[in-house]
Structure formats: C-alpha cells, structure tokens
C-alpha cells in the first residue's frame, strides 16, 4: 500500500487490469489513442489528458479512436454491451452529454425495464467534469445530478485515487450502465493505491473523517474542500464528520442519516448549480427522514445558479471554497 499514484494513473491502471483480465472489455472515445489514420505516432495522446495512454499498443484492436460523433459511438458502446462486450466509452467532457444523452437515458438506462428484465447493458461511460481549468461554460459543468435522476443508471463520483481505481473496476464488472465521472482537477491528486486489483462497492459511503458536531456530505472534488474546512474547524474546536457518498446512485442514505442523527447539523457541499442538485436531494432526504434530529437548518454549499465563467477571477468565486464550507459549518453550529 505504500505506493502512491495519481488519480489519473489509478484510472489507467483500472482500465489496464480489467482489459488484461477480461477480453470483452474494450475502450473507445475521441483520441483515446490519438493519431488514428495520421502519418505520425499512434497512441499520440492516449486521451486528451493522457488518461488512456499506453493501452492502445498493449491491447491491439481493443482501444478504438472514434470520430467526433458522441451519439454514434456512445450508442455503439450501448449496443455492443447488449451483444457480449463490456465497453468503456469516454465522453471527453461531460458537457458533451447534450449531443448523445438519448443513447444513455432513453436507450441504455431503460432497456432492462422496457424489455421486462431480459436485457443487461454492462456499459461504462467515463467523462471528465468540473470547474477549475478555466475551460468555461461548455467544458466545466458538474452534471452528476442529471444522471442521478434517471432510473436505470448508476452514477459514480470518486474523490481520490484509491476510490477511482476500485470504483472503476466495479463499474466495468457491474452489469448495469454506469456513468463514471472524473474531476479533471483531481487527475494529479496522489494517494495510496494497492497494485492489486480490487473493487469498491457502489452505494457505500466513505466516512472520511469522524466528528460529533456537524455532518458534511460532499461529492467528488468537494470532499477535499470539506476536509480542508474540517481540519481548520478542528482548530476552533468544531468536530466535523465528512461523508463521501462515492456514488450518487445508488446512494448510501443510511450512513448520511446515521451521522445526522448523531450531529443534528448538516452541510452539503456540491459543485453543481443549486436547483435540483445533489445538495437539494440530500437536504430533502434528511429533512424527511431525520427531521427530529435536526438542530439547525440544512446548509447547502453549491455553485451559484449561473453558467461556469471563464475568467479566473470569476471561476474561483464560482467553485465552493473551503472557506465557504467553513462559514456554513459555523452558521449551523451557532444556530439557536
């Protein structure tokens, strides 16, 4: 366990180990290798940020570059999943969902139900999400809430390298369609990752930090913002419990509710815009199922209801900061 690798390397390793283990696993996406049909190097990019680098030569014929045609190849991944493969399709930026959503939410997500339980669609859609790259409104969104809304989809938002590897392996082995969302700011995050293969189960929240005063539920990159806030608050004598649900669908409701039963105070940190978000979803859940335990109003900490701005001056304001989390915790702690 002593080995530290990055979030990006952890994802590459998960793909590598599953491709080695199971010949039915293929990957496809725009420039997953890069250089197809061009006179220069093959596997020139290995994905736009290099996440799939090296797999093209290691698994001949199983790393497919696609035309820029998300509806075509995402749908092809879904169809291939119905015919015995376990495809992992990369939607470069989750923002591109707009041109291929039908293949995911009307096709893949609904096959099993519409077909009376006689179909299974073991497809994984990987996509980058999140702000912080100065990539502006069409390359920075945080849309896991949209997928979470759809019955038939599972939605995974790893917050660290260990979870990224184990959750991706679980995603590939899972027999349902899985949306696997990678925060681009986390790609360089290092952490302890076992060399061996392992799976992290869906629907099992990680209690990242224990505390009795305030529960903070956070998703993806926001887990780290929450931990920074919790460490600062510890020095002020406020002990936060930080919960990373790891998957938004299925959602580990019990761990959240048990924690709020203990603390009576809840802050939800969500990089999405606030309306119909995971923040409002968790707030609704807790208001309904742990109402009696609440000692203060639930505080959501989210992006504002605006598109992601370009200028660093604005984008830095857009992303929920550790300071914003800290302030929210203090508000719920001091509420009388």
């Amino acid at each position: 366990m002593a080995r530290k690798i990055t979030y990006q390397q952890a994802i590459n390793e998960a793909l590598d180990q599953e491709m080695a283990r199971d010949a039915s696993v293929i990957i496809m996406g725009e420039d997953n290798a890069g250089g197809a049909g061009a006179p220069g190097e093959e596997d020139a990019w290995g994905g736009v940020l290099g996440v799939t680098k090296g797999l093209f030569h290691k698994y001949p014929g199983r790393v497919l570059d696609t035309p820029i045609s998300e509806s075509g190849y995402v749908g092809a991944a879904v169809g291939a999943a119905c015919n015995g493969l376990r495809p992992v399709a990369e939607l470069m930026f989750v923002d591109f969902i707009g041109v291929c959503f039908d293949q995911i939410y009307n096709q893949a997500a609904k096959f099993r139900y519409m077909f009376g339980g006689k179909a299974q669609t073991p497809v994984v859609i990987r996509a980058m999400y999140g702000a912080g790259f100065r990539a502006a409104a069409q390359h920075s969104q945080c849309l896991y809430n949209m997928f979470t809304h759809i019955p038939g989809l599972k939605v995974v938002v790893p917050s660290n390298p260990y979870d990224a590897k184990g959750l991706l392996i679980q995603s590939i082995r899972d027999n349902d369609p899985v949306i696997f969302l990678e925060h681009k700011v986390l790609y360089t995050m290092e952490g302890d990752v076992p060399e061996e293969s392992y799976t992290v189960p869906f629907g099992e929240a990680n209690v990242v930090r224990e505390g009795d005063d305030v529960t903070i539920v956070a998703f993806g990159r926001m887990v780290n913002q929450a931990l920074l806030a919790a460490a600062a608050l510890q020095k002020q004598g406020i002990h936060c419990e930080v919960i990373d649900p790891r998957t938004t669908s299925p959602l580990d409701e019990d761990t959240i509710l048990e924690s709020v039963e203990k603390t009576g105070r809840l802050v939800v940190v969500d990089e999405s815009t606030p309306r119909c978000s995971m923040a409002s979803d968790i707030a609704g859940l807790v208001a309904q199922k742990a109402f009696g335990a609440l000692k203060a109003p639930i505080e959501p900490v989210t992006a504002p209801h605006v598109p992601v701005p370009f200028s660093d001056a604005l984008e830095d304001l857009y992303v929920p900061s550790p300071a914003a989390v800290e302030a929210a915790v203090i508000r719920v702690k001091e509420y009388r």
Binding site: E196, S197, Y198, R209, E210
Partner: peptide
C-alpha cells in the same frame, strides 16, 4: 476500533483473491 482501522480492514478485504 477506529474508523481508520475498519477502513484499512475493508481495503484489505476488497483486494482480488
């Protein structure tokens, strides 16, 4: 039996094999 102790044990139990 701390959170970390349980978590480490889970990490072990999840390893392939």
């Amino acid at each position: 039996v701390t959170r970390q102790l349980v978590d480490d044990m889970l990490k072990y139990k999840r390893l392939e094999g």
